[in-house]
Every structure is written in C-alpha cells, then in structure tokens.
Design a binder for these strands. Structure first.
Lengths: 217, 217
DNA sequence: GTCTATACCGTGATAGAC
DNA sequence: GTCTATCACGGTATAGAC
C-alpha cells in the first residue's frame, strides 16, 4: 500500500461522503453507503475521522478555507479597483457570487457537491445557524461591511434582511434541485450557475438599492 | 375510545410529525420519536398512514389545499382590483407572500412548522423538484403568468430565474434557521415573517423590474 | 501507520397476533 | 385499534493483517 493509495482512500471517503450528504442530508446517509461508494471497509471512515459527525464536519470544513480565500480576494480586488467610495453594490455582489462558478468551470463535480452541501446546511433549522456562523461569519461580515459602505443611507437591519434574501436565492441555486428545470419546461437549468448569477447579480443589486435607499431612521 | 379521541390521536401524530420532519428532515426522525411525541403506540402511525413515506406525504399534503386557496384568492383579489393591465409586480408578489403570515398571526405553531417543512422539501435535491411540482406547480404557474403580464418586455427565461430568486429568499425565511439572528446580533429575527416580507416585497419587485425591463430578445 | 474482518448491541420499520 | 415480535440495519469498538 503506497502513500498515494492511502491518500486516495481517505479522499475517496471525503468525496463520496460529500456527494451523499449533499444529496440526502446527514441522517439520510449511512457509513456503510459511504464505505461501499468509496470501495473501502466500513471501519475505515471511523479510523480516519472518528464518529460520523466528525466526518460530516471534516467534509464541511475541507473546502471552506479555499472558498473563503477565493471570495475574499475577489472582494479585495474590487476594493483595490474602486475609488475611495468603495465598490458598488453590483461589484460587491459580483465578488460574492462569481467565485462560486469554480464548480462549473473547473468541471470538478466535487465542488458542485460541496456547494450543495452548504445549501443543505444553510437551510437546515438544525445545523444552519451554528455551522454556517462558525465557518462563514468572518467572511460574510466583510461583505456586509462593503455593502453598508456602498449603501450609506441604509437602515441597519435592512442590510441584513437584504443579505438574507440574497443568501436564500443563492442557497436554492446551490441546492440544484432541478425544480426550475421542470417549472420552466427546460428553458432554465439548475446546473447553469453562470446563468443564475447573470440574473441574480442585477436582481439583488436592484433589491438592495431599492430597500436601502434613503430609509435610514 | 370515543371518536374524538381517535381523531385527536391521528392529528397529534400529524402535528408532531410535521414539527419533527421540519426540524430534522425525513431521515432524521423515527416513527418512535413521533409516537412518543404524540403519546401513542409505535404502530399507530402505520395503522393510520401506512409506511413512513406515506405519513410524510400526508403531512406535506394536509395543509396544501388551504394554503393554495389562500394564495390564489389573494391573487384574484389583486386582479379584481386592478385595471385591465393587471396588478403590478409588487401586488402580485404581495399576494404570493402575505398569506404566509397566517403562521405568525394565527399563533398556530403548526403552520410555522408546515412552512418550515416546505422549505426543507423545496431545498432538497432529493425531494425538491418532484414533491414541489406535484403540489404547487398549478398555483405557481398562475403567479408566473401574472408576473409575465406585469412585465410584458421580459425575456422568457428571466421570469423563471427571477421567480427562482424570490422562491429562494422565501424558502430560507420559512426555514427559520436563526442564522440572521446571529449574524445581525439580534437586530433581525428569523421568526418575524412580517418584517421579512416588508423587505422581501420591494426587494424582489425591484429585482424583477430591473432584470425584466426591456430585455426581450 | 493503514486498513480489513467481524462482532456487538441498540434501534429501525413493519407484519401479524390479539 | 393496540401490543408484541421480528429481523434487518444502524454506528462503532476491537483484533489483527499488511
């Protein structure tokens, strides 16, 4: 057994766990399904990761740093290119969303599964608040600050509610449920993140502007 | 055992199942938890509803008709009060969202749980497309048609993508994850549907207008 | 250190006795 | 309508192979 094989088994577990958890949620997946999907023994997941919940967390955290770094650098780039008033709402939202196209462009299915997993967690009353905050709050607060700067007249809570709307639209996109495909009879495809963001950016930007313009109390 | 007791046990099962499924998802709940929560024997759920999946469907369908009727009548009212150009985007979205405040105003926790269950289903790659379409497509198509009428220059797909954004924002709201509470340090509350819609309606309306104005190909 | 085989024991859904 | 029994499947610990 070479080192390469070892890494590959560990990663195969993470990959298949990512896919299955994204599809069926934490409770909908068994360690045996994961093991069989990765072509390894049932006990190997426990050996590498400990309890089922630890594996779930490992999957959730694996790509988090990379994703956060990618979004943050997009934001920094927009800030560097802006004048001292800072980037526009559109530019901030663009920096928030476009890095997620990595899933589509890299052709790496793993990223798509990971993003669907985020959607599962973010929309879950059970996991949502805690897991999301732990991993994403620092980054999200950066974006909130940038949005506040772009909308200086915004009422304090309105920024959060608007962000919530954006986050919801994004979450449903990442979940890739196929619903829009059915509803639109094929005119739109769940898998087409780029098309989704092409609409979501002007949609959300207009929403932010409308709600946050001159409503300060 | 009187008839009233029977009805009440059946309903207790539905109520607790609704709450637990909404919280933890289909696989995160056992029939034993449901039975113990309803203070009935383990087998009673099977007696009344058949398999676990049948119970899940029964819960999902129980309030659907009432909800659909309530939203449709809100739409019809807006249409009756409008001139022949039909209701505005805001009015259509208002009719889509406001009936959901029933959960808050009636004080009926059951409705809140039911709406959270819809959020779970709508965001799930596994259940999403099929279950949602079966129950809600007819109604949603009415709203899509009204939106298209209010935005006559809209590109065909854009209406669907904009609706998708609205649906996502709504879904995250219904899920009531508590995330916005944490993020805003208490300034916004997940449980406050009215506040959510007060922002969501102008937010989404502005988004629709921006994206769907003069973009027809 | 990496991995497999296996066994444990609790819990699951559900059928059938009452 | 209710209670019990069944039996497959769940997570996980352990022993030892490589």
């Amino acid at each position: 057994m070479t080192k390469a094989d070892t890494i590959s088994k560990r990663n195969r577990i993470l990959n298949i766990a990512e896919e299955l958890f994204a599809q069926r949620g934490y409770d909908g997946v068994t360690l045996r399904q994961i093991a069989s999907g990765a072509n390894v023994d049932v006990a190997l997941a426990s050996y590498h990761f400990g309890k089922k919940l630890d594996l779930f967390n490992a999957v959730f955290e694996r790509r988090a740093e990379l994703l956060n770094a990618s979004r943050l650098s997009a934001l920094r780039l927009a800030q560097d290119n802006a004048n001292k008033k800072g980037p526009s709402v559109e530019q901030v939202i663009e920096a928030f969303l476009r890095p997620l196209e990595i899933a589509q462009e890299s052709g790496d299915e793993g990223w798509k599964n990971y993003l669907a997993l985020i959607a599962y967690v973010n929309n879950s009353p059970h996991w949502g608040a805690l897991m999301m905050s732990k991993i994403f709050d620092e980054l999200v607060n950066e974006f909130i600050a940038a949005l506040r700067k772009a909308l200086p007249n915004a009422k304090h809570e309105d920024i959060y509610w608007c962000y919530h709307n954006l986050s919801g639209a994004l979450t449903l996109t990442l979940a890739q449920t196929g619903r829009i495909d059915k509803l639109s009879k094929g005119a739109c495809r769940s898998s087409d993140f780029r098309a989704a963001y092409d609409v979501m950016i002007p949609f959300a930007a207009a929403g932010f502007r409308k709600v946050c313009k001159a409503r300060k109390d």
